[in-house]
């Protein structure tokens, strides 16, 4: 019973984090905040996986000869190592893009960027200038 409750509250946290992150991704106009939201969202999944593999009272899965030892499942944990790497790469790439967007548009606010796009595409020269090329 206690295990179940203990099992539940981490899932509740996962859900709260997940919803917070997803809300930020969808609702925030600021690109950096979107990125932060995405990170929180991904983190919630990491916690979800780690909780899955964790046995209450379980220890690291190193054989110690005692048949009564409870082991945690290492596989989800390893998977999450990979997922963290992917998450870091995603965040890094996103932030790099934001930097470039800021250079090109002078803003990281989505509504301003959209407005800038419209005004620019009206008066754009035929051959685009390459401020953004580098």
């Amino acid at each position: 019973m206690i295990e179940q409750l203990a099992g539940s509250w981490n899932y509740i946290i996962v859900i709260i984090l997940m919803m917070t992150g997803l809300f930020m991704v969808i609702a925030r106009a600021n690109l950096v905040k979107k990125m932060i939201g995405l990170s929180i969202f991904q983190t919630s999944v990491f916690i979800f996986y780690i909780s899955l593999g964790k046995m209450a009272g379980g220890t690291a899965p190193i054989l110690d000869g005692n048949p009564d030892t409870l082991y945690s499942n290492p596989l989800p944990h390893v998977l999450i190592l990979t997922a963290i790497v992917v998450g870091v790469a995603t965040t890094a790439l996103g932030l790099a893009l934001i930097l470039r967007i800021n250079e090109a548009f002078g803003s990281v606010e989505e509504d301003e960027i959209i407005a800038a796009k419209a005004s620019q595409s009206l008066a754009r020269p035929k051959r685009p200038t390459s401020e953004a090329a580098e």
Binding site: K34, L38, V86, L93, G94, R100, A104, K117, Q120, P128
Partner: peptide
């Protein structure tokens, strides 16, 4: 694509975010 049109950056960013949510 930003070399010819800066909107490519925004398109890439959106694909990144939406794609990451999908993959997650």
């Amino acid at each position: 694509g930003a070399g010819t049109d800066r909107r490519a950056l925004v398109a890439g960013y959106h694909y990144l975010v939406i794609g990451a949510v999908g993959a997650t």
